[in-house]
Design a protein around this nucleic acid. Structure first.
Lengths: 248, 248
DNA sequence: TTCGCATTTGCGGTTTTTTGCATAATTTGT
DNA sequence: ACAAATTATGCAAAAAACCGCAAATGCGAA
């Protein structure tokens, strides 16, 4: 077994189990403990994993959080305020989940009277804190990573709604591929939401722009409005403007 | 189990329960008391927790000290553990919301494989933190005070379920009036849940016993099991036992 | 292919870390 | 104050990591 091969295998196992044991690896790969140790040491130096006595732990599980998180909250706040301005009394609004949406929920005018539909547990809670708006949770099996209700029943429920606005946090957007996601179930939900709304608003920090993921949610022509933290005239947004999307 | 893994597990448990017992940890993780003690000592030196006799306390919790709170949380923990013991692999379980249910969710065995249905946003989130159980959120209009989905659609959804167990936090219970609540919408949900389950388990601190509220949820004969923080032989529970309810 | 060179790998011996146990000391609750 | 439970301490065995070296392997060039 080649060195590269081994190291890829180690990282693969680490993604699967979040932990690997030196002894396991050496017997599985048919090499000596020392070799495994050296592999782990290298990978650790490359910052790919965390080496511990007896094996290694996945890095993603341990850290991975709250570095740029803090930085982005400011931007998300700018976005949230712009989005909140679009909401008017009496509207029926579908929303996805995600941190941008949570900020949006916090930014809503306290006098606002509107009805929000969402599949996201966290978003539902945030909306429910608001004094006057109505919140409808769309239920189904919960996808744990995203805390989103997904499945046929949720899609059906969404299909039975005629909303004025769909406010959607974006993961990836691109002039070629449009709006895309990595999770098939979530994609089904988002597609249904867009279909069920008169207008679709995408919100997200500009980092998410010009990137794509595996599964397409919608073409750009299905998107009506795009909100980022940038100035509407920022050149980064020009290509989207050319596709007929209104930028705020 | 690796050392770092153990320590992360300890901190995780501490976030969940605000308190851990040496003995609990050693049996859960399959290591000796001494090892756990040494782990706690290290974590304590790193300022990650506060070590006390018999276990450790969460740092954040210790600062905000509230006698009443602590007292009730301890009781709710006792209740939660008893309730968790009733759940077996493969079961379909309906649950209501409330703090007792949240504690119950935290106390579930990490290896458990079961499916939980709930109308409570908070409960759904808590269940979804569990590594292996399935969570189904039953959606509808959110009642803000209780963060519960209520309404005809939710009731219908519940009616289409055949659950093994219904675990219900109680607000008021009484030998005369049975189980009662103040919110009409919530009552509809709870009634539907009891009807949809083979067995109904009521959980709640003993304070809630021998009190009644405006609207009846169920007669005592519809309740199979009652769990409080008290010893099953406590005289306070005797009248309920006489009504054929099993006490844990 | 074959040769030479750099890298990689395995092994023996040593050091360090970790863990569990026994016993003594301490704390807790009654 | 006493009995039970919890903790500290010292110690020994096992596991893992480290070190240096020689053999093996991979790789590029002749």
């Amino acid at each position: 077994m080649l060195k590269q091969e081994r190291q890829e295998y180690i990282l693969h196992q680490l993604n699967l189990h979040n932990k690997v044991l030196c002894a396991d690896l050496s017997s599985k790969m048919g090499v000596s403990d020392d070799t495994v140790r050296r592999d782990l040491q290298e990978l650790s130096q490359e910052d790919k994993l965390i080496k511990v006595h007896g094996g290694a732990l996945s890095k993603s599980f341990h850290t991975a959080f709250d570095r740029e998180m803090v930085y982005n909250i400011e931007n998300k706040n700018i976005i949230a305020k712009k989005a909140a301005a679009l909401v008017q009394n009496g509207m029926y609004i579908l929303t996805s989940g995600g941190t941008s949406i949570l900020e949006f929920a916090k930014s809503l005018d306290q006098q606002l009277n509107a009805t929000f539909f969402t599949c996201s547990l966290n978003a539902a809670i945030e909306f429910a804190h608001h004094p006057s708006i109505e919140v409808v949770m769309i239920g189904d099996k919960i996808a744990k990573e995203s805390m989103l209700a997904t499945g046929a029943s949720a899609v059906q429920a969404i299909e039975s709604i005629q909303a004025d606005l769909c406010i959607m946090g974006i993961n990836s957007m691109d002039t070629q591929f449009g709006l895309s996601e990595n999770d098939w179930e979530v994609v089904q939900i988002k597609k249904a939401m867009i279909k069920a709304s008169k207008k679709t608003v995408c919100i997200g920090i500009s980092e998410k722009l010009n990137s794509q993921q595996k599964i397409k949610v919608a073409n750009l022509d299905e998107i009506d409005i795009l909100i980022t933290e940038l100035d509407p005239n920022d050149p980064l947004l020009a290509p989207y403007k050319q596709h007929g999307i209104i930028i705020y």
